[in-house]
């Protein structure tokens, strides 16, 4: 377990899963803070950027609260989850949204080939996991996804998943880590991944 004196801040904005992330950390013995205060976010040891919602309204909200600049300038480890991951990228097809541009990748809409269902809801397998966020225990195992938009595989992909086509289940560039799936809802496996993040 990581040093419990570390200060973990979950960025507070109109995202649906803020409380679920808080609870997940509590189960690991960590009392995180939920905050939208730039000062508190900037000085945290680690920052979690959760997300459930729609890209353009969320980006507009972040800009209005000046949180976009705060996130861009973070130097400590940051974990983006689901929409949080997509917003770290350059651009999203979801209502043609310019995102934070921290990871040079684009977010695209799933287009079914053989009548696959969209959104991609449920448990799917991770493969080719790499880097400090993952370890061999997660290779080939199931995590929980809920999304209609995805990030293509690219230079910053640290975990992959297959639905309609292979896509990025995890991304990393410098101090910015991200997962498309919800570690806070992915059972014991998700807890392992959160623990790995807390150990960074």
């Amino acid at each position: 377990m990581s040093n419990k004196k570390e200060r973990i801040v979950i960025i507070d904005y109109n995202a649906g899963n803020v409380r679920s992330v808080l609870f997940a950390l509590q189960r690991l013995g960590i009392e995180a803070q939920i905050s939208a205060e730039p000062e508190l976010i900037q000085t945290a040891d680690k920052v979690i950027f959760p997300g459930v919602g729609e890209a353009s309204t969320t980006m507009a909200y972040l800009r209005e609260k000046k949180l976009d600049k705060v996130i861009r300038n973070l130097q400590q480890p940051v974990l983006g989850i689901c929409l949080g991951m997509q917003l770290l990228c350059t651009h999203s097809e979801e209502n043609n949204t310019t995102c934070l541009g921290l990871i040079p990748q684009n977010v695209r809409l799933f287009r079914p080939i053989k009548r696959e269902k969209v959104p991609h809801i449920g448990w799917n397998r991770l493969y080719d996991v790499q880097g400090a966020l993952f370890d061999s225990r997660q290779e080939g195992e199931y995590t929980y996804f809920v999304h209609s938009y995805f990030v293509e595989k690219g230079d910053y992909t640290i975990a992959s998943c297959d639905y309609i086509l292979p896509f990025s289940a995890g991304l990393q560039k410098d101090n910015f880590y991200a997962t498309q799936f919800h570690p806070e809802k992915s059972g014991g496996l998700g807890q392992q991944i959160l623990e790995n993040f807390l150990k960074l």
């Binding site: 409380r19 679920s20 609870f23 997940a24 509590q26 189960r27 929980y144 809920v146 919800h182 806070e184 809802k185 992915s186 059972g187 014991g188 998700g190 807890q191």
Partner: peptide, 8 residues
């Protein structure tokens, strides 16, 4: 339930 469970 949300505090105890780690599934949706």
């Amino acid at each position: 339930v949300a505090a105890r469970l780690n599934i949706p």
